[in-house]
């Protein structure tokens, strides 16, 4: 059972992620006017934001320690923040600054934070075999650390997903496979791309325990992840979890989402953050003043991170030529 202090912490972390994504969204668009240009402004390039998917990151990472690993997909910020990646350095990377996690080389889809064993990739599903390898290293070194591979429901139709599950199960490695099912692979709806409603059924094909978690509820996600992470830590091998969540915004910023129709309204109404806030306030776990105070505090932290990024120096042009080889 989740205690009330944990609930408040869950709310704070989800509010922190949302504040971050909202601030990035505002800043991303702010200097792309009047002609919207994907390559313009202080934050250029593609921007995939995770509003709505905070419960997955927070419920999962509450079970992890710094030495546990995560491979995240192209939509990585919520997982990075929940895993403890430094917000300032991550923001500086997204602003392409020398103080960023990767000195401006990686950008928002290629964040690497080795101290937190956090990485992400812009190629769908391709982080999953990497997590298997991290689990191999943990297992061979005799640690009880766990590697978590996170990918979207669309990625579960990639060969890499199936090969990674097979290997992890065959070798009984400490991996937790998390499928974030937000219902959309860019514009392709889940039910037009995946013939089964419950993707966790695929776990049985590889002889591993699996579960689908409905409701985008941080506490239910926490409990499901707890079981899976504990199993991996104890040497019980991998687990597949398919977690139902929601993509509140476009696939990338600038996506008009005409393909979503009425579903977009339903998604907006299912926003997990105000729902959880209301739940805690009405249960008397948090006063409205305390909730507002938390939101003010996380917004201040985000502002500070963005200020740090904006005031950081750009990399030197000649740095483009270094880091090709170690």
């Amino acid at each position: 059972m989740v205690d009330n202090d944990t609930r408040v912490d869950f709310f704070r972390q989800m509010a922190r992620i949302r504040a971050y994504e909202a601030a990035l969204q505002a800043n991303y668009h702010a200097d792309k006017t009047p002609q919207w240009d994907i390559g313009a402004g202080l934050i250029p390039g593609e921007m995939h934001l995770a509003a709505g998917q905070e419960p997955v990151a927070v419920g999962l990472c509450a079970n992890l320690v710094q030495e546990d690993a995560i491979t995240a997909p192209h939509r990585p910020h919520h997982l990075a923040l929940a895993k403890g990646v430094d917000m300032k350095k991550m923001t500086a990377e997204i602003y392409g600054r020398d103080t960023g996690l990767c000195h401006g080389k990686g950008g928002h889809m290629h964040l690497f934070a080795p101290e937190q064993h956090f990485s992400c990739s812009g190629i769908i599903g391709q982080g999953m075999p990497v997590a298997v390898g991290q689990a191999m290293a943990f297992s061979r070194r005799g640690t009880d650390n766990v590697a978590v591979a996170v990918a979207g429901e669309g990625a579960a139709n990639q060969g890499a997903f199936h090969e990674a599950l097979n290997l992890a199960s065959m070798w009984k490695l400490p991996v937790v496979f998390i499928i974030e099912d937000n219902g959309w692979a860019i514009s392709v709806a889940r039910d037009t791309a995946t013939p089964i409603k419950d993707g966790s059924l695929r776990g049985s094909a590889y002889g591993m325990p699996s579960q689908r978690v409905e409701g985008n509820d941080v506490e239910a996600i926490y409990e499901a992840c707890k079981t899976a992470v504990e199993r991996a830590r104890a040497g019980g091998g991998p687990t597949l979890l398919e977690i139902h969540t929601v993509r509140l915004w476009g696939h990338f910023e600038g996506d008009a989402q005409a393909y979503r129709g009425e579903e977009l309204n339903e998604a907006t109404e299912s926003d997990p953050l105000p729902a959880y806030e209301k739940r805690l306030v009405s249960a008397g776990i948090l006063t409205q003043e305390q909730a507002d105070q938390i939101k003010t505090e996380v917004a201040a932290e985000v502002d500070e991170a963005i200020e740090f990024a904006k005031s950081s120096p750009e990399p030197k042009p000649a740095d483009a030529y270094i880091h090709v080889f170690a």
Partner: peptide
């Protein structure tokens, strides 16, 4: 394009 992966930051990408 020089023999380096393509960097993200505009200043680096346009250098290359």
């Amino acid at each position: 394009y020089p023999d380096v992966p393509i960097p993200y930051a505009r200043v680096l990408e346009y250098e290359a």
